[in-house]
């Protein structure tokens, strides 16, 4: 998994509340293998018109945001389907962080498994960041995971992150290996659990 330590990159505002994962990547692309890449399908049905031409009113299509690695979204971003392809699509299109007032739970979890940092900030702060980015398209944000800050010019916002997830991202750790360090605890738990609930197996 990619490490995430600090990131200074162009950020693109996307003001769509309840942006579901069907919108991030439509279902017809879900049969794609991971190795084929998902980046070109990102926001496909809202990003391109019926003829396949980019829609100029869609922020990701504006030249100023071409190199964006940070998405500044709206409430309940990534709600709906559990498809991890929503994270693959963002990742493969170059994104490494998403800032929003709230996230769909499964999407939020999926981010951490793919080296992507989801950041929750209060709605007013996210709105202010989006407004600033819209006024000056193409300006960068800096995200510092160790210190849990988002910076734009001389403005700094602090965010919370679960310590364990932070550690995994900072070190690019595979959480299966982490879990297997607890293998004897799992075995102990299982033995007792099965003794108490023979009917479950």
């Amino acid at each position: 998994m990619d490490k995430f330590e600090t990131l200074t990159a162009v950020a693109v505002p996307l003001k769509v509340a309840n942006c579901d994962t069907d919108r991030i990547i439509p279902a017809r692309f879900l049969k794609t293998r991971r190795s084929e890449g998902f980046g070109r399908h990102l926001f496909c049905d809202v990003r391109y018109d019926a003829s396949g031409a980019p829609r100029h009113d869609f922020p990701l299509n504006r030249p100023a945001y071409a190199d964006a690695k940070i998405l500044v979204a709206d409430a309940n971003f990534g709600c709906g389907s559990s498809r991890e392809a929503a994270v693959y699509a963002l990742h493969d299109a170059g994104f490494r962080a998403v800032i929003a007032p709230s996230f769909g739970d499964i999407f939020f979890n999926n981010c951490f498994k793919n080296g992507m940092l989801p950041i929750v900030l209060p709605a007013e702060e996210v709105a202010a960041i989006r407004a600033a980015l819209t006024e000056n398209p193409g300006t960068p944000l800096t995200i510092d995971l160790e210190n849990q800050t988002v910076t734009r010019g001389n403005q700094v916002w602090s965010f919370a992150v679960d310590p364990q997830r932070k550690q995994c991202l900072l070190e690019g750790l595979d959480d299966i290996n982490l879990t297997l360090q607890h293998r004897s605890a799992i075995d102990r738990f299982e033995a007792q659990y099965r003794a108490e609930r023979a009917w479950v197996e």
Partner: peptide, 17 residues
């Protein structure tokens, strides 16, 4: 519901964080 990486984790460890 869980994502694909978590499915992999459950298959390998029968547990989930």
């Amino acid at each position: 519901g869980i994502g694909a990486s978590e499915v992999k984790h459950v298959l390998a460890t029968q547990s989930i964080w």
